[in-house]
Write a protein that binds this DNA or RNA. Structure first.
Lengths: 209, 209
DNA sequence: GTCTATATTGTGATAGAC
DNA sequence: GTCTATCACAATATAGAC
């Protein structure tokens, strides 16, 4: 039963507060209050609030990049894709504070802008990868133009579903179920699947409701 | 050549500033500076910054509700739908400050929450209306479940396209082309159209690129 | 209606004792 | 490492003269 270092407790509490009331509404005082430590102590561990945000972003970036290393030429099954989406939405949910005030946060911490954009690009590329794999296996048929707009749509949805969903229940920002987002993503893909595979995908999608 | 009242100039300048640098980053001082009036003067016309936001929201709400009064049982053509989407995205672009910091803004002005939600509901209903009309005309075929997820997807995209798009060029928030969003919306609908109508819709969508 | 102060408050951040 | 001040500053908002 090792005791957690204060530094890590600060990160952990900050993430929780950011997610539940929004990063712009969280002051350094609120964080230190939550942990029953002094503001001075907080500033001993982090020289600014921005540093906390950036370190949390580091974690997010790491998690995302790990997740997005999709093998280029593998045969991906519908199940694997569902699992991938599930993990993706879980990761987004874990750092949802980022997405809920995305424009705002990125406008205030401009070093994060380019990094976030890079992750977005990688997401779109991962979706394209999966779709290409489906095409090679004959599960999916699309022309290049459709594929482009589909992958962009998938990226948009992966990005904003959590924010869109919390709009419906802005009162308790604590609870988030990633399932509904996965369902929605699958239904973006289904129309482009071969008729035979659509029913299987539809059945799979129900599990996420 | 009537001169514009100060009160209206404040609203106009605020909207422009909100849209270009984000509502949270706009101070009352910045607004009065932009207009070459004193902060005191601004507070003579509006008793708080929140009042400015709320009055702009009134305008937004009015514009939106006007737009969303879609006739229930009319036969809507693909062209009419394209035109509707065009107007919708223009309206969103005009008040894009709202969407770019949506969660944040709604969390700080809670009177706006319920009103915004109501507008969202009306949007979804309008999409459903259009789709039902398409179905009656035999242009579209979907079951009820698909229709639900499609309309939600349309609402999400209408809501967040502008924010998603400005992510790509966060440097100049001034310019926004609504066209790409309309294109994306159409491509959400196309898969559900009857084969004969798909090509027509595809051609139409190109005009918005 | 408009201006020039000025009050007030909240927040990020630092200094120095323990 | 942690605490108790305390500073500095920016933003909202008000008071009172013109």
């Amino acid at each position: 039963m090792k005791k957690i270092k204060t530094r890590d407790r600060i990160l952990q509490a900050s993430l929780a507060l950011f997610n539940s009331v929004g990063e712009p509404n969280v002051t350094t005082l609120l964080i230190s209050d939550e942990l029953d430590i002094s503001p001075g102590n907080l500033y001993y561990h982090f020289k600014s609030k921005g540093d906390i945000v950036e370190e949390l972003f580091d974690h997010y970036e790491q998690d995302m990049l790990d997740l997005l290393t999709v093998p280029e030429d593998a045969d991906i099954s519908l199940e694997q894709q569902g699992f991938f989406l599930h993990l993706l939405f879980e990761t987004v949910a874990r750092y949802r504070f980022l997405y809920q005030d995305l424009v705002n946060v990125l406008s205030r911490y401009d070093q994060l802008r380019v990094r976030f954009k890079r992750i977005q690009k990688k997401k779109t590329a991962a979706f394209r990868n999966i779709c290409e794999s489906f095409r090679r296996q004959g599960i999916m048929m699309t022309d290049q133009e459709e594929l482009g707009s589909l992958c962009e749509q998938l990226t948009l949805t992966a990005c904003y579903w959590s924010a869109f969903d919390t709009l419906s229940h802005l009162d308790d920002r604590e609870s988030v179920d990633p399932g509904r987002g996965v369902y929605q993503m699958m239904h973006l893909i289904i129309p482009y699947l071969a008729p035979a595979d659509r029913d299987e995908a539809r059945l799979m999608s129900r599990d996420y409701l």
